[in-house]
Amino acid sequence: MGEGSPARDQRRGAYRAPAPSAQALVDWPESFGNRFSIFVDTEEEFDWGRPLQRESSETRAIAALPRLHRRFAERGVPSVYLVDYPVAADPAAVETIAALIAEDGRSTVGTQLHPWVMPPFEEEVNGFNSFAGNLPEALERAKLTLLTETIAKAFGAPPLIYRAGRYGIGPRTAGLLAELGYRIDSSMRSAYDYSAEGGPDFTAIRNAAFRFGPGDALVELPLTTIFTGRLRKAGAGLFHALGRVPHARGVAARLGLLSRVALTPEDMPIADALEAIRIAAGEGERLLNFSYHSPSAEPGHTPYVRDAADLAAFDRWWDSALDLLDRLGFRPASQADLIAAACGKGAASANAPGAGGL
């Protein structure tokens, strides 16, 4: 896969994703052009400020997705809905999402694993176990297998894209995904480090897509992170060094020296995101991977959309980002587009409408 092998920090138990080798990087075909994707963490509602609970499994906010979905669809932008177990097991939620997919013909469904609400329930609910890659291999396999089967039954085709909830990929996850027929993983969040919580460390991961796993069977599409500011060339190394000094990251951002910008409307000001998109375009990024959480489609479920004013700002964020992407020549990419370009056209056709696809 790259420089070194998957490793765990024995002191903290964290999985450290190694940087991919140059040979593992995906060489997007010229015909692919410059693209962007939108992945939606499609999940239950829970209190983000309280400890995780198995009982938090309501999916009322799914009913708010059609309004937002149609805003994207009107602009020809498909979504990949990465659904977790409470969503896939709720007939009303499945009906809503399936109707949206049928309506625009390009959106699709993938998988997201929240282990604390995913049977079998054998582990203690705590922060460490909320990262699925920390679970014993047999339990991670059991949860992932049942979730994959549930999604395939609910939506009529096996999912091909996976994201671990809380970005909690582990050293055995790629092998399990390959066994189950997945083609793309998007669990890695470029330049982020969750090891202080017992989660994975993606400090070595940049934005470029790469092949990994057994026999390079999978393609990793990291969530895009762009560094902005006068010292942005120093990137992740300087950012993580600043994290060892109290308030240093905030000072660097306020002085216009260095900011870390993820491509999401959740806690990322639009001015910062637009600057990040411009930098990414100027530096030749071929694929920008955006995301948001489905409960943000309705006020009151996430800290990012608390009321009607926040929801209006959320809509404006997307309008501004999509306008800029259009001006810069970035076209939206569907699951089929991504798989055809990264894995070959034969791989894409296995999940196409009429061939058991979503």
Rank of each mutant, 00 (worst) to 15 (best):
I62S: 00
I226A: 01
G357R: 03
T173N: 05
A248R: 10
A132G: 13
D41H: 14
G133K: 01
M1E: 12
A313M: 02
R67T: 09
S21M: 07
P20T: 06
G300Q: 01
I161H: 05
E149G: 09
G199F: 07
V94M: 06
R278E: 13
D310L: 08
W317S: 04
V305S: 06
A236D: 08
R230D: 13
I184A: 04
I205V: 15
R163S: 11
V77P: 01
E137M: 07
F32S: 05
S56C: 00
V94G: 05
A88H: 05
A154G: 10
G256Q: 10
A164K: 05
L274R: 08
G300A: 11
A297Y: 13
N126E: 02
R244C: 11
T145G: 12
N134L: 00
S186P: 11
F131M: 02
R50L: 02
A347M: 14
A61S: 14
K153Y: 10
D193P: 07
S57I: 00
G13E: 01
E43S: 00
L358H: 10
F330Y: 12
A24L: 04
I169K: 08
G199K: 04
T203L: 14
L322R: 07
E44H: 00
E123F: 03
G329V: 01
G13A: 07
D90G: 06
A73F: 10
P299V: 10
L25Q: 10
G250A: 15
T228Y: 08
D307S: 02
L324D: 04
F290D: 07
P171G: 04
A93L: 03
P119E: 04
Y15G: 03
A336T: 11
R166A: 02
E197W: 01
F39D: 09
G256W: 08
E124C: 05
E45M: 02
L242K: 10
A142F: 03
H293G: 08
A22Y: 08
F131E: 00
E74T: 06
R71W: 05
D104N: 12
V83W: 07
G199S: 09
R254A: 13
R54N: 04
F39C: 15
L146T: 15
E30H: 13
G156R: 15
